[in-house]
Amino acid sequence: MEDKKRNEAYNRYVKAKIPKTHAWPSLFNSFWVGGVICVMGQGINDLLMLAFPSLSQQSAWAYTLIILIFIASFLTGIGVYDQIGKFAGGGSIVPITGFSNSITSPSIEFKSEGIIYGICVKMFTIAGPVIVFGVVSSMVVGFIYWIISLF
């Protein structure tokens, strides 16, 4: 009981002792890097629409995302994306490029364990939850719509 009190007091003390870093620089960096990535996406999308006028809006978006995913995956491979991430934090995690990075990085990391047990098994160690949560929650939404549509 006394230990518990001591531990709580110690954790409170440690929390107060942690040096307060200024949040503004990292917030600013994440803002402009994230903004630039989104502008890049818009630019790619607009160029696609210009070059291939027959493309539907939806297909153009799909191509845009695929191109962004390709770029991020490539930058991860040559070891640049983690440096962008170190600088921008949320700015390069939240866009779809961060999703691509989180799939490519463990694949490369665990390549040494072989193609099956390394690359393929470890591919979703970070991004797996994103797909699981996304699929499950969208199915819940779809199911609710189905119930509503019955009446």
Binding site: Q83, N101, F110
Partner: peptide
């Protein structure tokens, strides 16, 4: 921790 190429930030501590 995480794969080397993952673009995350290290906490200040």
């Amino acid at each position: 921790r995480f794969p080397l190429e993952l673009g995350n930030q290290r906490p200040p501590t």
